[in-house]
């Protein structure tokens, strides 16, 4: 059974997580500096989040369809995203085993990884807040 029951749960969790990253005094400015536009496509359930740092002044976060053209796109099952944010699966193994598809300049995506690492600690609480199965499991 997928860890997210619905697209709404998934999008709400990811939106809050990226908002926390945006507001973090360390992670937020570093991401803005990258000027990266990254889009994450999830399936089972479907979901999409776009993180736009392109203007260097404000990180914009969009869920669902959006008109912004991403520089880097990552495609994965929602369960893989969950494992990633829990620190249970590394990007290298996920790529080698075909669990993550990366489109665009991979090096730019990799540059973000060390920056967002502190968000691993924030994820479990945000996930529990939005995800019905996590609440039920308590």
């Amino acid at each position: 059974m997928p860890v997210y029951a619905t697209t709404e749960e998934l999008n709400a969790t990811m939106y809050e997580l990226w908002t926390a990253i945006k507001q973090d005094p360390d992670m937020g400015p570093k991401l803005l500096q990258s000027k990266m536009i990254a889009q994450f496509h999830y399936r089972e359930p479907d979901g999409r989040i776009t993180v736009d740092c392109s203007d260097g002044t404000e990180m914009k976060i969009y869920t669902g369809e959006c008109a912004v053209k991403p520089v880097v796109e990552m495609f994965m099952k929602s369960d893989v995203a969950h494992e990633f944010w829990l620190g249970k699966i590394g990007i290298p193994v996920a790529i080698l085993t075909g669990k993550i598809v990366s489109k665009g300049p991979v090096n730019q995506a990799l540059a973000l990884l060390p920056v967002i690492k502190p968000a691993f600690d924030l994820y479990p609480a945000i996930y529990s807040k939005h995800c019905s199965s996590a609440v039920a499991a308590k």
């Binding site: 796109e73 598809v101 990366s102 489109k103």
Partner: peptide
């Protein structure tokens, strides 16, 4: 450029 990336 559409094919740049990994597993893409």
């Amino acid at each position: 450029l559409d094919y740049q990336g990994l597993n893409n």
